[in-house]
Design a protein around this nucleic acid. Structure first.
Lengths: 195, 195
DNA sequence: ATATAGACAGACAGGTCTGTCTAGTCAATA
DNA sequence: TATTGACTAGACAGACCTGTCTGTCTATAT
């Protein structure tokens, strides 16, 4: 369950444990005692690296943002044979995620729901993540040949909304088919712009 | 903040208080002590009506399911001048919700994220709610003239996905504009089927 | 060799959580 | 009038929470 691997430094061990447990069970459900137990770290060490649990939660969000975007870039690159195929490949990529038995939804949306406070650091960091992903999508649309910037941004926003809708649907239905539904909608939107 | 109104019976008072507080702050964040304080009820009375806090959470979901669908029916009826306008009126309706300062996202999706357990009663009840809403959307599509059942169900599923995407976007961005984006996508999907 | 930094183990404080229990009040009914 | 049942008030148990603190051990650097 945990990711001890006592070779790595304590901070990394704590963060890796938090990534696994926070994603699986939520932030509030996981106590500091469990985190230190599973990461094989002393409590004082924990609080040396993360002054409070909230700081760890924030680090968790930021770390996952980087990892998630790297995953998307790599998976789209693998699945899309041509630049034109990249926008729709986003939905093939997310489908793979849905099929992973450890899939538990979007860590960012889940955290926003959990903290339930729009002015919290976690909320802001999660929102920032989605802006970054939307920018990635806009790049894919650019590479796919959509030259008009305002059209591109509107489409990027639409695909982001479809992606979020697919994720929340998949976790609720515990099924990967929402990815296909979202992909078909996206294809309809892109028809005529890319073809 | 609370909804005492000591005229009504204790069970209703507890449930109304839970609806307000659970929606605003989440289920885990609200303790039983706070619930009984704000509903003006003794602890023993609370546990007489709800054997555990989980039972109250489940009652909260079920109650909100009924209320939400009643709200959608009433609002679509008010906003759509003709049956053909009903499917898109869903997005005008949700926009009103987004503009309400007390809007805090989808109670069902939030609860699913919070409990983080696909086999929980709360998760199942929330999923059941969405199936019921999808059935409502299918009815609107039927009334709007989409005769083919399989086409209708696919479109209903698409509109539900758009609705979920819009909600998660609105709560994250703390803005109502996601409703318009979702409405435009829905209009594109419906073009040709309704006109 | 000795000092320093950082890790370990784990007790502890102070607070919160859910759920149980006792004791007393009040209104309706037999 | 006496009893019953649902209510209020709040103490309590036991678990769990975050965060602090003391003390020990090891590795590195001087």
């Amino acid at each position: 369950m945990s990711i001890p691997d006592s070779a790595t430094d304590p901070r990394t061990r704590i963060l890796q444990t938090a990534e696994a447990l926070f994603y699986r069970h939520g932030i509030r459900s996981i106590g500091v005692d469990r985190l230190i137990a599973e990461s094989g770290v002393a409590k004082a060490t924990f609080y040396r690296h993360f002054p409070s649990k909230d700081d760890l939660a924030l680090a968790f969000i930021r770390e996952r943002d980087v990892a998630w975007r790297a995953w998307l870039a790599a998976t789209v690159a693998r699945l899309a044979p041509t630049p034109r195929a990249r926008p729709l490949a986003i939905f093939d990529a997310i489908r793979e995620r849905f099929e992973d038995p450890s899939f538990r939804g979007c860590a960012f949306s889940n955290s926003i729901a959990e903290v339930a406070q729009g002015d919290s650091a976690v909320h802001r960091a999660a929102a920032e993540h989605k802006r970054a992903v939307t920018a990635m999508i806009a790049s894919y649309l650019h590479e796919a040949g959509i030259a008009d910037a305002s059209r591109r941004n509107e489409l990027a926003r639409a695909l982001m909304l479809l992606l979020d809708g697919a994720i929340v649907t998949a976790v609720r239905e515990q099924s990967a088919t929402a990815a296909d539904a979202a992909r078909r909608i996206a294809a309809t939107l892109l028809a005529g712009h890319i073809s």
